[in-house]
Design a protein around this nucleic acid. Structure first.
Lengths: 340, 340
DNA sequence: CTGAAAGCGCTTACAG
DNA sequence: CTGAAAGCGCTTACAG
């Protein structure tokens, strides 16, 4: 009963102490100053559990990512947490390791914690896992889950825009034989990237699919493997566009090791713009996807949903537009021997 | 009064529901099964705020780092969070951005949240900021704060060991003219690294200080700048050891750009073993510091302090031993023209 | 502008 | 093995 101690010492009721604590304007200045002094003297710290129980909120947001070690996330987490702090909200942080069972578990625990909102920033979000939060009317915002976009608010990445810029850039440099380095097709984000590339390529009359599509794993290793394949092609493709930076970097490293000069012999484009992408030599040309923007939109949407008291009723979708960032790994297409 | 609903529907008291929820062994199996069924039917989720208020704990740990974007931290956070999840503890995550004012703020908020323990994994920890938690008897564990190690439990990095291995490795390769790339001397971790290097060098009769010490900034840029200096030296140093990986990578990139071959012309050693260190060409030889181990020790110590109910009374220090990881950026010292 | 009192949803001695 | 009841520390209509 700590607030009681304070109230006694200050010669007021607990109600008044509480009002001072919460900055209520209807406390006499003199009183509030006295209370404040006592609070400071006693080093009183209010008990948030009690407060939360009473007000029915927790002033915490849950933040779920798939994998912190994926360099995509730190920026996003950083921004989300900074915004939360600025709003006097704490963030309970969890990760799923790409496991939808763990996702369900994370959501449940956040619901038990009574969080005021949940940002599910995982690459795949299983609807069943979200059920429990939705039932409680806890606002949820997802990252890039178009399949659920009618039921849940989403931050949606507009892949079309980014890949169109990339293809256009390469075409302008004279490239016609461009290979797309894909990832596991069961991931919707991968399918959407591939589709976006292909749509852009078609627009410029560039062939796609078949030998222009190399499967990958979204990791450095996949980029390395892709280079092996590319090097064996008779007329060698002049450019590669990867579904993510990690593969682009793998390709860049492997190509360099194999004695190729980038971009003279082959151009490489990534996707994401991870911080480490400027550490390679040459620096990677890539499609920048702003994690700050994603975090900011997710956070704002959560705040909005809470104020609206409109749990999921209407879902809103926010678009984020990637942009091509030309650095050093792209250049003019090498002259090619005429086809036989 | 949600537990009340459950109890009514199950035809028992709230006490019994609570016991079932908490896995008390003294509930009749038949009863507990019935209660469980009702809980499932009703999709009941207990309110943690109420529980926390009652039991006086929150079953949350606070985790404070300086900067998530620093690639040193993701591994640490990942491990800490995984351990927490395994122990049914949630983690409230914050970062200070190297600002001791923000640190004080973070600690205060965690105290208000009633967290059961706080891991302050920042490079510098201001004692004043910790005061408020210590007063409440909330267990704290610090990273690498020897100055506070008598008052607070610490996870301490044994820099000596790591740098001794590095120097020995280089000496065995014939290096005698080794430059240490330092950082801001106001950081204790930097001072300790430099001191560790110098102690090791002395042991092997290698000169230190003076021109063998180049100031840096702990960033890629500092490594680049250092190379400029090194390249101007008349007998060029044959090896560089950096206070962290980022500078080592900067040096590696700049040296490569300047036309040097690594390790043929100069050997480079980093510190930390960041994930991105294998993405360079050549891959960086570096001193590996296990973030997993740091996280595990910090977490275990928190759990220990809580069980001991021994708030800070006795501080325990846990050592973490870095180890040299030889990769590709170190090799035999180049033959040098005889000194005039 | 201030206080008395109820109540948020749990858990836990205590009694049976 | 189970229940009645107190109480964790706040906040907030309500009354004055």
């Amino acid at each position: 009963m700590d607030i009681l101690q304070v109230s006694k010492r200050a010669g007021v009721s607990t109600a008044t102490v509480s009002r001072v604590l919460n900055g209520s304007p209807k406390v006499r200045k003199q009183t509030s100053e006295r209370v404040r002094r006592v609070i400071a003297e006693m080093n009183y710290v209010p008990n948030t559990s009690a407060r939360n129980l009473r007000i029915g909120r927790s002033e915490m947001f849950g933040l779920i990512v798939s994998d912190i070690k994926n360099p995509f996330f730190p920026d996003l987490i950083d921004q989300f947490e900074s915004l939360a702090t600025a709003h006097d909200i704490d963030v309970v942080f969890t990760h799923t390791n790409y496991d939808s069972q763990r996702l369900a578990n994370c959501v449940r625990r956040l619901v038990e914690r009574n969080v005021d909102g949940i940002a599910v920033m995982t690459s795949e979000a299983d609807e069943a896992a979200l059920q429990i939060a939705r039932q409680r009317g806890i606002p949820i915002v997802l990252l890039n889950q178009p399949a659920l976009s009618s039921k849940y608010s989403n931050v949606l990445v507009d892949y079309m825009r980014g890949y169109r810029e990339a293809v256009e850039h390469l075409v302008n440099l004279g490239h016609r034989d461009i290979v797309f380095l894909s990832g596991p097709e069961e991931l919707s984000s991968v399918r959407r990237r591939r589709t976006a590339f292909e749509a852009a390529a078609r627009k410029f009359g560039i062939p796609t699919g078949g030998k222009h599509l190399i499967p990958g794993d979204l990791r450095v290793e996949g980029g390395r493997a892709a280079v092996e394949i590319v090097l064996r092609r008779k007329p060698r493709p002049t450019a590669m566009i990867a579904a993510n930076d990690l593969m682009a970097i793998g390709a860049l490293l492997a190509a360099t090791t194999a004695g190729l000069n980038i971009p003279r012999d082959i151009s490489i484009v990534g996707f994401d713009d991870l911080p480490l992408v400027t550490l390679t030599h040459p620096q990677l040309t890539t499609i920048h996807l702003s994690r700050q923007e994603i975090a900011a939109k997710a956070f704002a949407q959560l705040v909005h949903l809470i104020q609206k008291k409109d749990p999921g009723g209407s879902s809103t979708n926010h678009k984020v537009y990637p942009r091509l960032l030309v650095r050093e790994s792209t250049g003019p297409a090498p002259a090619r021997p005429p086809r036989k």
